[in-house]
């Protein structure tokens, strides 16, 4: 039996990226919404809802980056230099927001600075992730299997729009998370913010959906040629329906469904991007098969991945279950 290892690995990394975007998405979203909290106790409450989880959430980013190196070293070696500045700015953003989780509780006079570090770091990381995504969709200049562009090739209006879109998307995940995990003023504000953010996310999704097929013949072909369009036309429709349901659930005072709907919106947007880009890993020149590691390397790690990823998901579910339920005002883990 012949296994298509690059395809399996693309699925594994795709899965890691989805997990990262959803899980770190909501805790980065908390950071993005941080400046809108009015009082320090509200910020305490917001941060406490994600404190036991953020570390594990961020580990998916390491799996995504490490996995890309292991499975597609050629793509890793092109993408990272191509997005050199946004990648490093993202990392610096993550550093400041990450240490803010711990420093903020020990700080006395400099608490305000760590609030700022948490908010600015989260926003910067989200923006950079969107920029990298946008730049990747637009394509990378490659010569002789190496990045051949300039330091600021990634800086385009489309990439900036994607950056803002990801900020809005993570903020939506964060706002609906707060609706689910808190009560009182924090939850109420999250509910109000979530509605605006649904509109913003839909707006950015529309921009990306219209822009990409207009800019790329290949992407237009993928969506609008027959028979593809027969299978693909429900994607935007389901997206609109999900957004509508999320809005209704927010209005109806439901706590958990809006968060699930926000996740669904992300999954749909992600599916749309995969449809547009697959099988390219470094558009427009290199596919997952062009950039794959040696089959024996892919196979060696896959043997461990098959049992370990379900095990990891098992204990992650266990920890989320352990810290389930709403966090009331004034309660904390610290």
């Amino acid at each position: 039996m012949e296994w298509d290892l690059p395809l399996i690995w693309a699925a594994v990394i795709g899965f890691a990226v989805v997990m990262y975007v959803i899980l770190d998405g909501f805790d980065l979203g908390i950071g993005i919404l941080f400046p809108f909290a009015r009082e320090e106790r509200e910020r305490d409450q917001m941060m406490n809802t994600v404190a036991p989880f953020w570390d594990g959430n961020e580990t998916w980013l390491v799996l995504g980056g490490g996995g890309l190196w292991v499975a597609f070293p050629q793509a890793y070696a092109i993408i990272m230099p191509a997005f050199y500045l946004p990648v490093i700015l993202m990392l610096l953003g993550l550093i400041f927001r990450g240490v803010a989780f711990e420093f903020r509780w020990v700080a006395v006079t400099s608490r305000g600075w760590w609030n700022l570090a948490f908010a600015a770091g989260s926003t910067l990381a989200a923006f950079c992730q969107g920029v990298i995504l946008g730049g990747l969709i637009e394509g990378i200049r490659v010569e002789n299997g190496a990045f051949a562009g300039g330091s600021f090739d990634w800086l385009t209006p489309f990439a900036v729009a994607c950056g803002l879109g990801v900020i809005a998307g993570y903020a939506l995940l964060g706002a609906t998370w707060l609706v689910m995990k808190t009560e009182g003023s924090v939850a109420a504000r999250g509910r109000a913010q979530a509605k605006w953010l649904i509109l913003a996310v839909l707006g950015f999704m529309a921009i990306v959906s219209l822009w990409t097929p207009l800019a790329s013949e290949r992407i237009a072909q993928r969506w609008f040629s027959t028979p593809n369009i027969l299978f693909l036309w429900p994607v935007p429709l389901v997206t609109a329906l999900t957004a509508f349901l999320a809005w209704r659930w927010l209005e109806a005072g439901r706590d958990i469904p809006p968060f699930l709907a926000a996740i669904a919106l992300f999954l749909l947007g992600y599916a749309g991007l995969v449809i547009s880009v697959f099988p390219y890993l470094v558009p427009p020149s290199l596919t997952i098969w062009d950039t794959a590691a040696a089959p024996e390397s892919q196979a060696f790690v896959l043997i461990g991945t098959i049992p370990l990823v379900p095990l990891i998901i098992g204990y992650i579910v266990f920890v989320y279950w352990l810290f389930r339920g709403k966090l009331r005002e004034g309660e904390g883990y610290h």
Partner: peptide
């Protein structure tokens, strides 16, 4: 990457 990448992947996993 083919040789030491897997060690990094197993470290994460």
């Amino acid at each position: 990457g083919n040789v030491i990448g897997p060690a990094i992947a197993y470290e994460v996993l």
